[in-house]
Amino acid sequence: MYEEFLEDIAQTNGLREVNTYLKLVAGLGTILLCLLSSSYIAPLFIATVLSGAILILARIDARTYAELFIVPFSFAVMSVAVIILLSGGNDVYWSWNPLSWFSLSITRESINEGFFVFCRVIGGMSALIFIAVTTPMTDLFVVMRQCRVPEVVLDLAMIIYRSIFMIMDQLVQTYQAQVMRLGYGSFRESIQSFATLCGSVFIGSWNAGEDLIRAMDARCYSGKFAVLGETRPVELSSVLAVAAFLMMSSLVVIFSGNSTLL
């Protein structure tokens, strides 16, 4: 699972050369629209359009995209079930009152509410995945610097970014070596092996991090990473596409009003 981060996909996606701000406006704008909408229609509309953009324009493998959705999807189903059981309404289909302060019921209103939240999660997730697969972190660092994110935070963010990959490398190697030596045979052994794994990788990548800082110090690092920001041209066609998409989504939000599933 870890061998392929979204980052690798983002580096080679079809929308790589589109201006970063434009992609962020599209992604963040739709997240906001999903939250502002009070009906399930707008989030579904947004999810459909963005999924199309991800699959066709960014040329992301459909299988990868589906796999990304599985975890949030299963969690959404679970949490929405809780919401349906907890919230009440007038049209009761089923109810159960084991305690005076605790009751579960399924009503028309609660199904509407649950379905609405479910669609909002789907809409929001597709917008998030859209940003994730089209914009590599390196581009976002440039944006963060231009937005005056404090230098020290940016610095730490880049060190963490680097150490994630260092830790990953060592973790995979050590873990495979442990598995080959039957390190995860029983529960007790698993805990022991996992702790050894974490400990040795922690120290190992800490050393690597110190080497990195020392190497950078030797090259006049003063607590400020120089990021070479490529400024990507803003193309008229993509501006129009994003504007049209946001306009249409806003219209859907306004006209769908409070319409519900049932």
Binding site: F75, I160, I164
Partner: peptide
């Protein structure tokens, strides 16, 4: 300044540990 690599590694560790999603009985993770 020596704290910087340690902060980076702790950050990386938090990232990796909290990405280890274990599916739970209830369906959430």
């Amino acid at each position: 300044r020596e704290a910087l690599p340690l902060l980076g590694v702790t950050g990386g560790f938090i990232f990796i540990l909290s990405s280890l999603k274990l599916p739970s009985v209830t369906g959430s993770c």
